[in-house]
Design a protein around this nucleic acid. Structure first.
Lengths: 251, 251
DNA sequence: CGTACGTTTGATCTTTCTCAATAATGGTGG
DNA sequence: CCACCATTATTGAGAAAGATCAAACGTACG
């Protein structure tokens, strides 16, 4: 929806400000970060488990995801990321990456030196707090995923994933909630929900038959957002959104 | 194993220092926190979803866990906690709790005013960093739980939970890895692994029959730690332990 | 136009759940 | 110390959700 970005890192400011207002100085400090824009292909890796990351990538365009593998190669996607989110806060001050980060679609990334980002995180004023909060909110999302995968059946599970993605895009004003592009294959959807691709396909068709989602290629829309939320058992509390956004989502 | 605690918050220092060394000053700042010791009964709540916590509890004795509920009342335990861990870092700077925190066993807690803890988190020197890192490591554990629940079968899943618990106790030098008390009922174990109590019972008996665990009441020992780790697909990387501890765990 | 990748479908199999009952255990009051 | 009660653990039988295997179908794109 919004306007051209004069500066890529404005997206990061907007994201950080979602949970904690930034002062002019904070914002200036973010925008003053030296960075390098890089275009990434779909499927390209940003971080691999075991890496010792030197740079902290901020997602500017496109989507990304984190995943881990079991010893026998099964994959679990543990989070999805939308523009404005920093993909390496997880690795701040930690020597070894404990998971992989990969582009979901083609996109762009602003690379910042880890040391510079660490300075911000420890730094003065509200930024350290904003970064800490961003990490706390991410941890909250992890908890909800654990609940989702551990205790909801496949139908709610997939519906919940869709709701969360739509809600987060809406919160960042990147898309309207009623309609958005879901750039995931059914296999990726399966890896994010702990299901098999075949079953995801069946559930998706079921949701469509019920009129809860409409699909056209990779783009999905929600003819009945309210009912989908019910089926998904979706409550946005865990996203810790500002009250304005919460109301927007509640219709 | 260790010695009497002259000061309860020393446990927190030790925990924070696990991932990031604390200076004398840092340590002094933690020990200078005003606190109130409180004895907690098993099952008592420390935080309820929706609360606006004013205090930050640090677990001194006993175990605790976090959990969330689905709309129709199914429970998912999302983490376990051992002495030394702060139970409310999650709520630092966040208005509303997004999950419940409950004692697993009887125990003790040091209550610190949230405002004081927040001051430390933003504060000078290494403490802010140590607290940030502690949160990052917790997030890493959440990711591993997602993988565990999403992609491992019930046998590995339960074995993994046991391994993690043992490893974390060992890292904090609270117990030796070969033998420890697991104070969870099979129902709680089920809620932590996304299974049913009946199935947990069967898996436990299976592990016992294989000689991977030995049970005697609630106490469990590991006659074959190495093989259990294999079955569990357990790799401690995600715990981000110091190298000394890692070797201790590798035997 | 062919190849690669993703989707869809059917048939069958397995793991895990559900329901139901019985046995241990631990704690309590007398 | 004992009887009683509430939890927790254990077992069996049957059901179900979701997995697996295999094949066909689409679609994008070089």
């Amino acid at each position: 929806m919004s306007d051209r970005q004069s500066h890529p890192l404005e997206l990061l400011c907007r994201k950080l400000a979602t949970h904690h207002p930034l002062s002019r100085q904070d914002e200036a400090a973010v925008l003053a970060l030296p960075y390098k824009l890089r275009t990434m292909e779909a499927q390209s890796y940003l971080v691999r488990e075991g890496d010792r990351p030197e740079i902290c990538a901020v997602l500017i365009a496109g989507y990304a995801f984190r995943h881990k593998l079991t010893g026998d190669g099964a994959r679990q996607i543990v989070s999805l990321h939308i523009p404005g989110e920093a993909l390496d806060f997880q690795n701040l001050f930690l020597a070894e990456a404990d998971h992989n980060v990969q582009m979901l679609t083609r996109g762009q990334v602003a690379e910042v030196h880890m040391a510079d980002m660490e300075k911000l995180a420890l730094g003065p004023a509200g930024l350290g707090q904003a970064i800490l909060i961003a990490n706390l909110v991410e941890a909250s999302i992890f908890r909800e995923w654990t609940l989702n995968i551990g205790r909801r059946d496949s139908r709610s599970r997939i519906a919940h994933l869709l709701c969360e993605f739509a809600a987060r895009l809406t919160a960042q004003e990147l898309q309207e909630e009623a309609h958005f592009e879901l750039p995931m294959t059914q296999e990726q959807l399966a890896d994010a929900t702990g299901l098999t691709p075949v079953h995801v396909n069946r559930v998706l068709k079921g949701l469509q038959a019920e009129g809860l989602i409409a699909r056209n290629r990779r783009s999905i829309s929600f003819p009945d957002w309210r009912r989908l939320r019910e089926v998904a058992d979706f409550n946005s509390r865990y996203l810790h959104l500002a009250s304005g956004t919460r109301e927007r989502l509640a219709h």
